[in-house]
């Protein structure tokens, strides 16, 4: 992040991740449209543009559900952390698929330029909630998120502001659910789509509420410093090359890491996207963030050259077999 900017920070893993995601989208849309054209005939026949519109719309919704489930799943179990690695690309792909859906819908219902596209998006004469406006609102939010997904924005807005802006995805999700519920579901006779939408909303909201509840409980159980030092538990509980997360009463979290037999402490918040450093491990002599692989010297808190990222460090001392972390930041142990 700190050494120059590239168009896309691709590596082998990200290329594989992206290839799988794009391939899956292509197969989904192809099967949806092809299957629809082959199976729906006679009175049930649906035109290719409408099938493509539905395929892209449902694909964008499925992608949005996946993107939104990755975060809480990774917080509940580290097994899902690899999915988090390239979530931003999945988010941008979601926006692009949704944009194609919207372009096709506006073009099709606006008779491809015969009518005012604004009138095609919103129909104020109708009494029911304007489901097109819900979809348009969600698309705008997804646009802002995709447009600010580059590391330049993450670094210069600061992870905290960037994440605050990206909280808007919650609003986008609510708007997408309303878009479908007040749009497609109103004329859909089959209960399948209704059940899928209800199950999707229950899963996404349930996972986030459960993960949020766990995090809040963890914050409430934070340790209070005594004489400026935090009791982090038995010193030998942290094994070589691993770290433990210590929550302080004010909600801040500290990663206690053991490297070459020595205990060191640093902020648990990765300078990149705020990932939980204490859930990572030491690789090549550096504590490595489990989210995107950003690395920090266990005792210096600095990234290895040429990178310049840094996280605050804390002094550590061992007292009667227990690790104590100085609450104030700064200095090596």
């Amino acid at each position: 992040m700190s050494v120059g900017y590239r168009l896309v920070q691709w590596n082998r893993h990200k290329r594989v991740y992206d290839a799988i995601a794009i391939g899956a989208v292509a197969i989904y849309v192809g099967v949806f449209v092809g299957g629809g054209l082959l199976l729906l005939r006679g009175d049930r026949a649906v035109s290719a543009p409408i099938l493509a519109m539905r395929a892209l719309g449902t694909c964008a919704i499925v992608l949005l559900h996946i993107v939104l489930c990755i975060g809480p799943l990774a917080r509940i179990s580290p097994l899902f952390a690899p999915l988090l690695y390239n979530r931003r690309h999945l988010g941008v792909l979601t926006f692009l698929v949704a944009l194609l859906h919207a372009t096709l819908a506006i073009g099709f219902y606006g008779a491809f330029g015969e009518r005012n596209p604004i009138a095609a998006v919103v129909n104020p004469a109708r009494s029911a909630p304007p489901y097109e406006a819900f979809g348009f609102g969600a698309l705008l939010i997804l646009f802002v998120m995709a447009a600010t997904s580059h590391d330049f924005w993450l670094k210069n807005l600061s992870p905290r502001v960037w994440k605050a802006i990206h909280l808007a995805v919650i609003g986008a999700y609510a708007l997408v659910v309303m878009h479908v519920a007040w749009g497609a579901l109103q004329s859909e006779a089959s209960p399948v789509y209704t059940i899928l939408l209800l199950a999707g909303a229950a899963t996404v909201c349930g996972l986030h509420l459960f993960a949020g509840w766990r995090e809040t409980l963890r914050d409430l159980r934070g340790v209070r410093p005594i004489d400026g030092w935090i009791d982090a538990g038995p010193a030998d509980a942290v094994t070589e090359g691993r770290a433990a997360v210590v929550t302080v009463h004010n909600g801040e979290r500290i990663a206690l890491v053991r490297h070459e037999g020595r205990l060191c402490a640093m902020s648990n918040v990765c300078a990149h996207q705020g990932g939980p450093l204490g859930e990572g491990r030491v690789i090549d002599g550096c504590l490595t963030c489990p989210w995107h692989g950003y690395q920090y010297g266990p005792c210096s808190g600095g990234s290895p050259p040429p990178f310049t990222e840094r996280v605050p460090t804390h002094r550590v001392r061992i007292e009667n077999g227990r690790a104590k972390i100085e609450a104030a930041e700064g200095g090596e142990p």
């Binding site: 600061s158 992870p159 909280l167 949020g212 909600g251 801040e252 902020s267 918040v269 840094r310 996280v311």
Partner: peptide, 9 residues
Amino acid sequence: FARGMRPLR
């Protein structure tokens, strides 16, 4: 530094 993540959480 990405401090003060609790309000965000």
